[in-house]
């Protein structure tokens, strides 16, 4: 299939998606819309973490930290001075943050850039520490961020968090950012740079002996991954309308890791599908925590059951689906074409 055909098909798909977004924003049930928004944010997070963990093979546990930076930075920029004033009643917000208000888009970008900066700092030790040690360093970083955000009251409002964030996040925003994330990361991965990243994942020494600068490329993965995590954090903050440091704990990172494992390490399609599916699954699983009536017998809802089922699923994936549900299979227009051809043959 020619490249131009693929680009055209992709463009058409994007238009179809935006038509869907247009009608969804008008008619979709707000509850479903909210879950879909969450799912798309998970997809952004999963695809961006996959760049670091799946494609470059640098096992990072720092994603929640990047998100927190993005969420706080953007929130402090797009919130109105009045809302800020009502939030920071204990210790006032430092100047000039207390007076600044900028458009949502630019707030997200700056949030992403701040996270990318953190990505650089976290990625730098990559040259010295590897494997599980790197996992520990990134975990440590994520905890340092959480601890700092709990204490820097004149910037973050401490453990009280920020409340009454304006809800800018809607499907237009989440869908657009998901598309941008997928395109950018897909293009990186398919380029010469992506080949270098995958080479580092497969064999660092061999990669280095082909002239690949390990430091530059590992940091590249961290910076790009962290940028999109930061943006996702910003989107999530505005969707949930409230953020506090402890919601960005290691548990959040675990959830994203679960998504990329289920979707298949180094599989973008898997990350997106499982990311969206995960949001719906978690919502749907809420029913297990509600009282149920089966054959006239009332079974009381059990608190925490949802997370227990989730963790059992996680363990089953780790133990039995090491390749994830999608394995190495990626979405491609060639694949779609083949599917149609097969059908025709059957007919």
């Amino acid at each position: 299939m020619k490249r131009s055909t693929r680009v055209l098909l992709s463009l058409m798909l994007i238009i179809v998606i935006y038509i869907f977004v247009y009608f969804s924003e008008l008619h979709m049930d707000p509850f479903i819309k909210r879950i879909l928004n969450t799912g798309l944010i998970y997809a952004i997070l999963a695809v961006s973490l996959n760049l670091i963990n799946g494609f470059t093979g640098q096992f990072s546990l720092g994603h929640a930290g990047f998100m927190a930076i993005g969420a706080y930075t953007s929130a402090l920029l797009y919130m109105s001075p009045e809302t800020k004033m009502s939030n920071f009643f204990m210790i006032p917000l430092i100047s000039p943050l207390d007076r600044i208000q900028i458009p949502f888009f630019w707030a997200l970008i700056i949030g992403g850039l701040m996270a990318a900066g953190a990505g650089f700092i976290v990625g730098a030790p990559c040259l010295r520490v590897r494997g599980d040690y790197l996992a520990i360093v990134t975990y440590g970083f994520s905890e340092i961020i959480r601890s700092l955000f709990n204490n820097l009251q004149n910037i973050t409002n401490g453990p009280l968090g920020l409340k009454g964030l304006p809800t800018y996040t809607n499907l237009w925003w989440t869908v657009s950012w998901t598309i941008v994330t997928i395109i950018v990361i897909k293009r990186i991965v398919d380029s010469s740079y992506g080949r270098a990243l995958k080479a580092i994942r497969d064999d660092e020494v061999a990669a280095e002996n082909l002239g690949i600068n390990l430091f530059k490329h590992k940091v590249l993965a961290f910076v790009v991954g962290a940028f999109f995590a930061g943006v996702a954090g910003g989107l999530l903050g505005s969707l949930l309308m409230t953020i506090d440091p402890n919601s960005f704990s290691i548990l959040f990172t675990y959830q994203i890791i679960m998504i990329i494992l289920l979707g298949g390490l180094g599989n973008i399609t898997g990350s997106v599908v499982v990311g969206i599916g995960f949001a719906f699954l978690m919502e749907w699983l809420r029913f297990v925590e509600m009282p149920m009536h089966i054959f006239g017998i009332e079974i009381p809802g059990i608190l925490g059951m949802r997370m227990l089922i989730f963790s059992v699923l996680l363990m089953l994936t780790i133990l039995f689906f090491r390749q994830g549900i999608f394995g190495q299979r990626e979405f491609s227009w060639e694949g779609v074409a083949k599917l149609f051809q097969k059908r025709k043959v059957k007919e």
Binding site: V184, R195, A196, K198, A199, D202, D203, G211, I212
Partner: peptide, 27 residues
């Protein structure tokens, strides 16, 4: 070898060292 990559990709990777395009140009 890069065991998860194809034969072709293994060789293509080695050209990266002399790549002139920067990341933006490539993306």
């Amino acid at each position: 070898l890069f065991s998860n990559m194809s034969v072709k990709e293994n060789i293509m990777t080695a050209f990266h060292v002399h790549l002139k395009s920067d990341l933006f140009t490539a993306v």
